[in-house]
Design a protein around this nucleic acid. Structure first.
Length: 567
RNA sequence: GCCCCUGUAGCUCAGAGGAUAGAGCAUCGGCCUCCGGAGCCGAGUGCACAGGUUCGAGUCCUGUCAGGGGCGCCA
């Protein structure tokens, strides 16, 4: 990565300056290289001279930060990425990338193709991203779409950073909610067959339950009315789960989200893992009986105030019991190096308890990270739409995707930090979907593809084996290359912050750089074949960068935008 | 009451202690002898409030105010 190379050069320059006596022999601060906001301040800049000056003052010396900066600058290598260096302001060292070096990066981008931007950070470590994990009791509502978009993009970005990633959906099919779901399904099924069977209290009133039941009627007729009600519900649990998981899968596919594994909570009971892990905790003294229930003594651990019930008075385990076993399974059985759980903030109270669970299981809590995201407040016709699966007042992902489009939806949901709450006005979203910024990035990609198609009619024949890179001298060309080279840093940032939304902004910046290039530099010119060839080569690099960025976000990179209009 | 998150342009939101705080939408004004005008160029308005730390604060700390969430033998 360029930034790391520059950082290393600065460190070496500092050491060389010290060895040569140009700088005092003191303990140096860590070098930080950052990108200045002002373009006039270079591609990269470091404040190390200012920090070093303060350190020197503390050590009894008194060295002007600008003098330190100059001494460092004098020892920077002349070849490589660093073109020129300026000392500015109170002691900033501003570094400008060399044009010649920039041009040499274009072939590297084209040769890397879809792996362009990838960084070797994960070194094959096995990470898991668990996301969505909505209750399997009905269609996904809009809030689930945000979770899906974040989790999916996060997994993409981690893969680009060299991690081996598993995408997992945890299916809560063992709890009370799922029992109620099955009972509701039974009632709807019976009603469809003419029996007066009321929906259970706290049942799921949404019409989609009728659709699910209709599917059962179509396939099985009245079979489940001919048996004992409880036996019927037991069978409907299995069939209902299949139906609802298929529905979830279809909805998520609409958003372009796919999972490697659907992990069933019930399997933790079937395998005996829940009992095993609870026994382990009991032996360790992490469990206690109180008021007839079994509690996990979470308050013995840091930052946790309350204990948590694992076995209810009625002998039924809580979701928390299986959650403990589930996380034990992730680390101790499957051996993930790290696990990222994507949750809505409404689960925030659960976070410190999970750290306590990890510690109690003898696992490093640092291996489990919870990414919390703000909830989505849906506005329709000027009023907030309260989401409730029970009452059936939900707007599903499918509805949103149908109205707004998958690309626009994902892009919108990823255009802000996870912790930021989102107010989503459906009417506005539909009205604005045509001018959604996602199309700006996609349009640039389509434009590049269009140029390649147009080339023969302009009598330009690309020859990417013989590219005269030295002809790429226009400021717009060099700016575009600079912007492309940022991708690695953008991926690094997204991984570090576990938040991929910076990539949405990057895709727009890259598109903007391309459009500026397109404006200033005529690509197809039969009178200048060598220049046309070099520019087509640069176009291909830009196309690769745009396609890669959009792919990380889970957004398509179309060859043409015309099809969109015809819809 | 206690805990967490959020407060940046008219609106929706970016902003890794650094130099003159950005984008989209909206508004206003320009640009089609052009490889795709879903484009380009330009204009206006902003860090909730009050202290503090620092050479330097939108960013860190404390307090106030406002909005959201959590504090279940629900998940």
């Amino acid at each position: 990565m360029v930034r790391d190379d520059i950082k290393l050069s600065i460190e070496q320059a500092m050491a060389a300056a010290q060895a040569g006596g140009a700088l005092p022999d003191i303990e140096w601060p860590a070098v930080e290289v950052l990108r200045p906001k002002q373009t006039g301040h270079g591609d990269y800049s470091t404040n190390v001279a200012m920090v070093a000056s303060a350190a020197a003052r503390k050590a009894g010396g008194n060295v002007n930060p600008r003098a330190i900066a100059q001494a460092i600058a004098d020892h920077l290598p002349a070849d490589g990425p660093i073109g020129s260096v300026e000392i500015a302001g109170p002691g900033f060292i501003n570094i400008f990338l060399a044009d010649e070096w920039l041009r040499r990066q274009v072939p590297k981008i084209v040769e890397a193709g879809s792996s362009f931007g990838n960084i070797d950070q994960g070194r094959g470590q096995h990470w898991q991203v668990e996301y969505v994990s909505a209750n399997p009791t009905g269609p996904l509502h809009y809030g689930g779409a945000r979770n899906a978009a974040i989790g999916d993009a996060l997994a993409n970005v981690l893969e680009a950073a060299g991690y081996t990633v598993q995408r997992e959906f945890y299916v809560n099919d063992a709890g009370n909610q799922f029992n109620i779901f099955a009972a509701t399904l039974y009632a709807r099924y019976a009603q469809l067959l003419g029996r007066d069977e009321p929906i259970p209290e706290d049942g799921y009133a949404g019409d989609y339950m009728i659709d699910y039941a209709q599917g059962l009627v179509d396939e099985y007729g009245d079979r489940f009315l001919t048996m004992e009600k409880s036996a019927a519900i037991t069978e409907l649990k299995v069939l209902g789960e299949e139906i609802v998981l298929a529905a979830l899968q279809a909805q998520l596919a609409k958003l372009g989200v796919h999972f490697d594994r659907w992990f069933r909570e019930q399997s933790l009971y079937d395998s005996g893992l829940v009992d095993m892990v609870l026994e382990k905790l009991r032996v360790q003294g992490d469990l206690a009986e109180r008021d007839g229930a079994i509690w996990f003594l979470a308050s013995n651990y840091p930052k946790v105030e309350k204990d948590e019930v694992v076995i209810r008075t009625n002998g039924m385990p809580t979701y928390f019991a299986s959650d403990i076993a589930y996380h034990y399974e992730k680390f101790a059985v499957r051996g993930f190096d790290r696990v990222i759980n994507v949750w809505g903030v409404d689960h925030q109270g659960h976070v410190p308890r999970m750290a306590a669970v990890m510690t109690a299981l003898g696992l490093d809590p640092g291996r489990l990270t919870i990414v919390l995201h703000g909830l989505v407040k849906l506005i329709r016709d000027g009023k907030e739409v309260k989401l409730s699966k029970r009452r059936g007042t939900i707007i599903t992902i499918g509805e949103v995707v149908d109205e707004v489009g998958a690309d626009a939806t994902r892009f919108y949901l990823l255009s802000r930090g996870p912790e930021s709450p989102i107010e989503f006005d459906m009417n506005l979203a539909v009205a604005e979907s045509a001018s959604n910024p996602v199309f700006y990035a996609q349009y640039s990609h389509a434009r590049i593809c269009s140029i390649a198609v147009m080339a023969p009619t302009k009598k330009v024949t690309p020859d990417f084996d013989n590219v005269a890179l030295e002809l790429l001298t226009d400021p717009a060309e060099l700016t575009l290359i600079r912007k492309l080279l940022e991708l690695e840093e953008q991926i690094e940032t997204a991984v570090e912050k576990l938040s991929p939304h910076n990539l949405t902004f990057y895709s727009l910046e890259l598109a903007r750089s391309y459009n500026a290039f397109y404006r200033d530099c005529k690509v197809l010119d039969a009178d200048a074949p060598a220049l046309s060839n070099a520019r087509m080569y640069l176009c291909e690099a830009a196309r690769i960068g745009l396609a890669k960025t959009l792919a990380l976000l889970g957004v398509s990179a179309p060859d043409s935008m015309y099809a969109e209009v015809e819809l």
